[in-house]
Design a protein around this nucleic acid. Structure first.
Lengths: 140, 140
DNA sequence: AGACATTCCTTAACACATTAATAAAATAGC
DNA sequence: GCTATTTTATTAATGTGTTAAGGAATGTCT
């Protein structure tokens, strides 16, 4: 039987922990959680998104996202508005405060990302990314 | 700037979700959470472990582990005892009930693991595992 | 021996993950 | 046009992740 340490889910978890070790300290300065930053990062790229799209993009389940959105709104980082043609949908976007914060933080985080890539190896990073993308298509 | 979807932490998260898609349905039958199974799996291999070792192995922080241990004890799956030479340490092991449950579940989970590996590709799986192991050594 | 720091585990407080259930809006079918 | 179903977002309940702080046992130092 496969040994404990050989399980892929555990390896993915540990790798993720290793990666977050590069970014967590910076996010704590703001302070923002990892999930909050993921939401802000997505909104920075797509301008305005429905709650459902945001959940899909960020890989966060709707009930969790509800709470994250509430807290980010409380902090003044995002705005919500109701879709006019479908009253069920909530459209979410960044405030100016969030855009400024993002602009000042993202270069530092990007630098960390570069550092991480270099300490690993550019080639291995590329190979790892491709394998991960391919693996995500594997479904039961 | 790097696009949202290109972030390694997010890719690792999604890959982990894809992997867990194979195992979650089986664990829910028992029912056990993913973390509870990880703890049981570790204890099955190492017989008896200190809380700290268990946390390290399972990649679970001590405060989380305290709760997991309490619930597993409630469910009758694990036993705790105090170390005689160091009263601070708690030693944890599986009950017979847990060992039986593990024996009946692990073949089914192992079969799923095989299925996952085959749908991906044995070679890619091996390559992915090696890259993940290497990546875990990369530290800020 | 007695103050001191260290180590292990736990509790506390908050944020998020997961599943099930619910309320409201929109759609499908008749 | 009206019910039945589906879709979207939320709440509820429980379990875990994360950081900080706490208490008890051990180790250190003089």
């Amino acid at each position: 039987m496969r040994k404990f340490d050989d399980s892929l889910p555990l390896r993915l978890l540990k790798a993720r922990e290793a990666a977050m070790g590069f970014f967590r300290p910076l996010l704590q300065e703001i302070p923002l959680t990892e999930q909050q930053w993921r939401v802000i990062r997505a909104l920075n790229e797509f301008e305005e998104l429905e709650s459902k799209q945001l959940a899909e993009l960020c890989c966060i389940l709707s009930p969790s996202l509800t709470g994250i959105i509430n807290r980010l709104e409380q902090l003044g980082y995002i705005k919500r508005r109701k879709s006019t043609e479908d009253q069920r949908r909530t459209l979410i976007s960044l405030t100016d405060k969030a855009k400024k914060m993002f602009a000042s933080m993202s270069p530092r985080l990007e630098a960390r990302y570069q550092e991480m890539t270099e300490r690993f190896s550019h080639e291995d990073m590329k190979a790892l990314e491709e394998l991960l993308i391919k693996f995500c298509d594997v479904k039961p």
